[in-house]
Amino acid sequence: MFATERPARWSVYALSLVVLAVVWQLAAIEAGTLLASFTETMARLAELVSSGELGSALWASGRIFLTGLALSIVLGLPLGLVFARFPLVTAAVETYVYALYAIPVITLVPFILAGLGFDFRAKVLVVVLSAIFPILISAMEGARSVPGRLLDVAHSYGSRERQLWADVVIPYTVPYAITGIKQGIAGALVGTIIAELFLNATGVGDLLIRASTNYDSAGALAVTLVISVIAVSLMGASGAVERRYARWREGLSG
């Protein structure tokens, strides 16, 4: 059944792309300068690439993204584990973790701008605030859902707390952590764009704002398209890793 479906599916995929290109082109003719056509957008993209503007913008924003994400992982995972493993700590902090997670980070941006300015550190802070909570919460959920059975066995064999962590809690949490990191990547992407647009505009934010104020729809479309491709590849890659480890999780829970 699947073997016969595949060609049909791929031809529909191809058709959908062709339809997009045609509709886009026709709409662009209709809309005039407001909407650049597909070909104009690609030409502008090539221009941005060859002038090096896009490359340096991506590098500037990428640094913020990676630093923020790395910090979120390094801080979020251990904190989540610690929060979850000690019931007293869990009871004390859980409410606040969820409460802080609920704050829309974008509304904090003006405060960060006023209090810390708009340098690299302030931008990384925005990314960390957007990315750390899903990571921390997933690690917490993971460490908390370690089956009592596994802990009992480890205790029966005389595991110390350290061994318990190394052999049971941390391995059990890995699939959860991966899910959290995937969501953290999504959060960090949003955080990076927010930081680059609303603390002073640099990197891709600068490209987008300049395109927007100059009514350069080809430029805005090209940059948005590039961001979209990056986002889809990042999420695709982390989704693949996640599925690999999800299988591991199912094996463990059996």
């Binding site: 909407l35 395109a211 986002a231 889809v232």
Partner: peptide
């Protein structure tokens, strides 16, 4: 199925794209 196949790439592409990045485009339009 055909509808799913047709829209999958757009929906998942746009779903993954941070919408904040589309705001500048929208102000143009």
């Amino acid at each position: 199925k055909v509808v799913r196949w047709f829209f999958t790439s757009y929906v998942s592409g746009l779903y993954t794209l941070p919408m904040v990045a589309v705001v500048p485009l929208m102000t143009i339009w």
